[in-house]
Every structure is written in structure tokens, then in C-alpha cells.
Design a protein around this nucleic acid. Structure first.
Length: 204
DNA sequence: CAAGAGATCATCT
DNA sequence: GATGATCTCTTGA
């Protein structure tokens, strides 16, 4: 890897996440998620995110209060929150804002960049557009499990890179979050963000 | 193509 | 005992 490439791939510091959750959710678009999987590094561009913020957000797991499951959400910004849903899938979040204020950004979709062959094995499919186009798929493709819960970004196993790609405001779509119909008025909050016309988002 | 159901278990009631 | 920040497969138009 050449020095110029190295210079353009900056690891995002923990402080990036210690900001308003909606801001972090938008700013993560166009950044690169990277995970060390064995000897290989898997990476891809984050193209879809969702914000979950505070105990008053009925879609946020912390609306149930501080429990053993939600404890991670109350940790400091940059902490990885991985949970298990539907008896089958994992979802990756990164904690935001101040310690003891439960909030996080869900990584919903990633456009694969490095380690694509490994992702195909992990996902048991060869279809590029089906590798990481959904929160459960992201975790399966990148080999993310609850073992990663509580790790703080940047770590040697998981980090986010800024490769100098900026997503223009007009290319960011705002929409209601997916799969939270049970959350009353919160279900309508436009807290889902994705890159317009991107082929790798979870749904149109 | 859209709609519906089944998979499968940690977590909370 | 019920449910879910999902995904895949099947069915039928």
C-alpha cells in the first residue's frame, strides 16, 4: 500500500462519535467501516444509517431503561453495541453523545470494498448487491457478533476510516426508520439516512 | 414483482 | 409467555 493511500485513509477518532446522534448518523455516510477478520481486513462504504436516541425514543432499546442488554448504550461514545434479534441476526451500532445518555447509530448498509471474497463466504452468496445491504447482512458479511459488544472504536479489530469522500447534503435522503412500527409517534421520525441512488441500501 | 410466512432465541413481562 | 432496529424462501398474479 503506497504512502499516498495511507495518508488519505484516516482512522476516525473516538471524539467523532461524541456529538449529536443525528449529526453522527449523517456524517457516517461515505465513511468506511473496517473490520479485521482473521488476517484479512474487510471494509466497505457506509451507505445507510439510523439514529436511536434516548429513553424517550420508543424505538430505542433504552426506552426499556437501563438493563443488562442496554447497558452498552449508556457507555461512552465510540463504544460498539451489538445485539441479537429474531433469534438469528446481529445488528451493529456505534454509541454516540455523552456517557450515560443512551444513544447510538445503527449501521444498516455497506457497499463492499475490500475483502469481498471473504464476505461472499461469510454470507454464503456470490451476489455483490446482497452482501451487506441490511443490518443483519452487514454483521454476517463482516463476521460481527456479540463478542464485539463493548469494544471502543477505534480498536485494532474494528474502526471507521475517512477516505476523503464527502457526501453532499442534497445526496442524503431522510426517511422513517425501518421495522419500528410499534414505536408510536417515534415510528415516524425521519431518522433513517441513506445515500441517494446508491445500489447497496437495504430498501428503496 | 409483491405479499406472506417461517426460522429461532435472548430479553423482558 | 410474547416479541423483535431481519432475512429468505414460497406462492401467486
Amino acid at each position: 500500500m503506497g504512502i499516498y493511500t495511507e495518508i488519505s485513509m484516516k482512522k476516525i477518532p473516538q471524539s467523532f462519535f461524541r456529538r449529536p446522534t443525528l449529526t453522527v448518523a449523517r456524517d457516517l455516510l461515505g465513511k468506511y467501516l473496517a473490520v479485521k477478520h482473521g488476517r484479512e481486513i474487510l471494509s466497505g462504504k457506509i451507505v445507510e444509517t439510523e439514529a436511536y436516541r434516548g429513553e424517550d425514543d420508543l424505538a430505542c432499546h433504552a426506552s426499556k431503561g437501563r438493563t443488562s442488554r442496554t447497558e452498552t448504550l449508556y457507555q461512552k461514545a465510540g463504544t460498539v453495541y451489538v445485539y441479537f434479534v429474531y433469534g438469528m441476526y446481529h445488528c451493529l451500532n456505534i454509541v454516540t453523545e455523552e456517557k450515560n445518555f443512551p444513544s447510538a447509530v445503527l449501521i444498516r448498509a455497506v457497499e463492499p470494498s475490500e475483502g469481498i471474497e471473504c464476505m461472499k463466504k461469510n454470507r454464503k452468496t456470490a451476489a455483490l448487491h446482497n452482501l451487506a445491504s441490511g443490518p443483519g447482512k452487514v454483521c454476517e458479511a463482516f463476521g460481527i457478533t456479540k463478542k464485539m459488544n463493548g469494544v471502543v472504536i477505534p480498536s485494532t479489530h474494528i474502526w471507521v476510516e475517512d477516505r476523503g469522500e464527502t457526501v453532499k447534503k442534497k445526496d442524503i435522503v431522510k426517511a422513517p426508520r425501518v421495522g419500528v412500527a410499534y414505536a408510536g409517534a417515534c415510528a415516524r421520525y425521519p431518522w433513517r439516512f441513506y445515500i441517494k441512488n446508491n445500489e447497496f441500501i437495504s430498501k428503496k
